[in-house]
Design a protein around this nucleic acid. Structure first.
Lengths: 186, 186
DNA sequence: GTCTATAGACTGATAGAC
DNA sequence: GTCTATCAGTCTATAGAC
């Protein structure tokens, strides 16, 4: 693995645990085993590192959604996999989705990072909306009516579920918070 | 208003905008108009300030829930007021609930602060559960079945709705994310 | 690419005068 | 209670050797 990737992995890990304002180049240097100055060679500024972080995260997320679509043609299966993805990202209560972690530090982020953050949410909503439209056809989700409302509500639910689980450091809280939605899946 | 209260107000404001790791004594000093050293007189350490902040926030929150109970005897009215409270706390997309903001900086908080955070969530869940039990009796919420599941799901929804609205800096996103739930109220 | 050294600003916190 | 002065440590970032 090249240094750049190694640094991105490490930075993503620590950013998802402590937020944007909660990690420094010194933290990364210590963990990766090179000097702070060397990190500046790969990412001249922390702002540029943040952008690279969100870009990679968003594209990985997009691929993950495509993979879900390939795995099943049934809306309820896809939505269950979506919720499961957020559960896995929680890492037992230790981490958050990068975008959740960055939302708090909003005022510290560059405009470019903010628009990547926005793109992440837009793409999520679009995929969810499309999936709830499918649900209205295949009937695999009970009480489903308006795909747009369902989409925005589910996004908020999984992000909020991560947050309460992170606050208590317990995955069980994520499971409790998402159980009601999951019970509507066929 | 006494200095201590003034400092708490200012600290709460800035903490809800930038998170625990996102504000300093220098920020408070500048805004309140006294020196950093003077703040240390009122709150010897930042950790103690954080605890005072959460304690006050939690007790205000408890009072707010009691006030909601006094205002109406109908479960749907109470739940609508609850959601409305989180919407107001969002301040147009600029702030978050203090506990949402602190959840990200979890690892920077003292054990005492963490247990206050836990208490806040426990009290919220308890009140919500009680209210959904009432809903099962008065029939003011459609499709309501399990009060515990409804309670944890709604807490996650309002916290997540705040987060996506904060990320985009738009209250409208909060409204979209909570609309589905509100449509179930009589 | 990686290093050491360093700049300049900021962090939370303390000592001691008033 | 509030101040100035200061501490030791950290922050992001840069210069220049190898």
């Amino acid at each position: 693995m090249d240094r750049r990737t190694e640094l991105l992995n490490c930075a993503e890990n620590v950013a998802r645990r402590h937020g944007y304002d909660g990690f420094s180049y010194a933290d990364l240097a210590k963990e990766v085993g090179i000097s702070k100055a060397s990190i500046h060679y790969h990412f001249p500024s922390k702002a540029e590192l943040a952008v690279a972080l969100i870009e990679r995260y968003a594209s990985t997320h997009t691929e993950a959604l495509a993979l879900i679509d390939e795995t099943s043609d049934i809306a309820s299966d896809r939505l269950a996999a979506y919720v499961q993805g957020y559960r896995r990202a929680l890492s037992g209560g230790a981490k958050l989705c990068l975008c959740v972690a960055f939302s708090i530090s909003r005022d510290s982020l560059s405009d470019e990072a903010l628009s990547e953050l926005d793109l992440f949410h837009t793409n999520s909503i679009e995929w969810l909306k499309k999936t709830f439209e499918l649900a209205n056809k295949d009937g695999s989700v009970t009480h489903s009516a308006n795909p747009t409302l369902e989409a925005t509500a589910l996004l908020a639910t999984v992000e909020g579920a991560q947050l309460v689980a992170r606050a208590a450091n317990k995955v069980a809280d994520f499971d409790k918070a998402t159980k009601l939605f999951l019970s509507r899946l066929a």
